[in-house]
Simulated scan of single mutants.
Amino acid sequence: MAGNSKIAIYGALAANIGIAVVKFIAASITGSSAMISEGIHSTVDSGNSLLLLLGMRRSQRAPDRGHPFGHGKEIYFWTLIVAILVFSLGGGMSIYEGISHLQHPEELKDPFWNYIVLVISMGFEGASLLYAVREFNKSRGKLGFWKEVGMSKDPALFAVIYEESAAIAGLIIALLGVFLGHYFGNPVFDALASILIGLVLVAVAITMVKESKGLLVGESADRAIVEGIYNLVSSDKDVETLYFPLTMHLAPNEILLALDVEFRKDMTVENLFGGIAKLEDKIKKEFPTVKKIYIEAKNFGGRDRPWMIEATD
């Protein structure tokens, strides 16, 4: 899945760099505020793709003494930075540009190049979005699409989906602004389109901040995974009592699992360790994203003494 996520980001990066250049050229020819906002939007998206790639690379570094659980959460940090840039540079500058053109309206020129650039941009952005959606659908659950996107643990995919969706919405708004501005001969429509594009980017940025924050502070695995682990372990013949599993995402495809288990009181030490090893194998086979498992075995041999067992790759 990581490789597919990278391809989605590379596709978005290539599309946004080319589109940003063309949008700014069209804006300089036509004087459209909405086109300037769209150029800013594509430029910010290009930088965001680079930051996501940086985050993915740094998150794959091996564990060390200072980070014994690895650097997987770094991808969540860079996703937060991307969200901040979308909010400040994308949304803020687009709103500023629109307000500036409301205060100092400029006569719009021939919109021909605006239409050409916007339609071509829709094609590139749409292709990038469709690829990201297709890759996301390979692993999503049975809930609604946007609900699943909100629950996703892979920023590389959900960031592209959010950004490309915002890009399509922005292009539609820009197209309407340019058309209405020339149809009525009033540049106010073009300036309002720029403000609306900024508001769309602000809304997307706030959504991404919310998603990134949940993952940074330690978000649990999906409910289906947690319940599946509970059912798998509690059905084991050696387990008398299992408390609710505790999970946390260390990376999009790396889950930390902590289990509090009461095994049969008649088990020997050898049987206990054998039972724990068996549980570890069963869990990792059924749920391959679970990479680190900590099992606390209680009430062993009729004594209320915890045995902390670590099971890792």
Rank of each mutant, 00 (worst) to 15 (best):
E262N: 07
S94G: 15
R134K: 09
V204I: 13
I17N: 02
L108F: 04
A2C: 04
E227R: 14
L13T: 11
D281V: 12
D45R: 00
Y131L: 15
K73M: 02
M208A: 14
N186C: 09
K285E: 03
T268Q: 10
W307Y: 10
R140M: 04
L256K: 03
A224R: 06
L272I: 13
T241V: 15
R305T: 13
V233K: 03
V204S: 05
A277L: 00
K292Y: 09
L89H: 07
S88F: 09
E270L: 13
V200R: 04
V149T: 05
D190V: 14
T30E: 06
L130E: 05
I295M: 08
A277S: 02
A224Y: 12
I295F: 08
L157V: 14
D154L: 03
G66F: 06
A12L: 08
G70Q: 05
G55V: 09
I75D: 01
E163F: 01
S235A: 15
L85N: 07
E296D: 15
N253Y: 15
G98F: 04
M56H: 12
A277T: 01
A8Y: 07
K6E: 14
G177N: 08
G98M: 14
M56N: 10
L279M: 10
Y96I: 11
E107L: 04
L171D: 01
L216F: 06
K213A: 14
A2N: 06
E262H: 12
F112T: 15
G141S: 11
S220G: 02
L171C: 02
F300W: 09
T268V: 09
G123F: 14
E125H: 09
L50D: 08
V160S: 05
I168E: 03
D260H: 08
G214P: 01
N48H: 00
P111G: 12
E254Y: 02
I99N: 09
Y243P: 09
F87I: 13
L102H: 00
S212K: 07
E135R: 08
N4E: 10
L143F: 02
G126D: 00
V217M: 13
G3N: 12
I197P: 03
L180N: 05
L192V: 12
N186D: 14
E97F: 05
K298R: 13
G31F: 00
N114C: 12
K265A: 14
E219C: 13
M1A: 11
M248F: 10
V202T: 13
G144M: 06
E106A: 10
M35S: 11
V117I: 15
S28H: 03
V188E: 03
A258V: 11
N137M: 10
M208N: 09
E296G: 12
T43G: 07
I17Y: 01
F244E: 15
V200P: 02
A159N: 08
I95E: 05
S100N: 11
I229L: 12
P155S: 14
A311L: 06
S5F: 03
A297H: 07
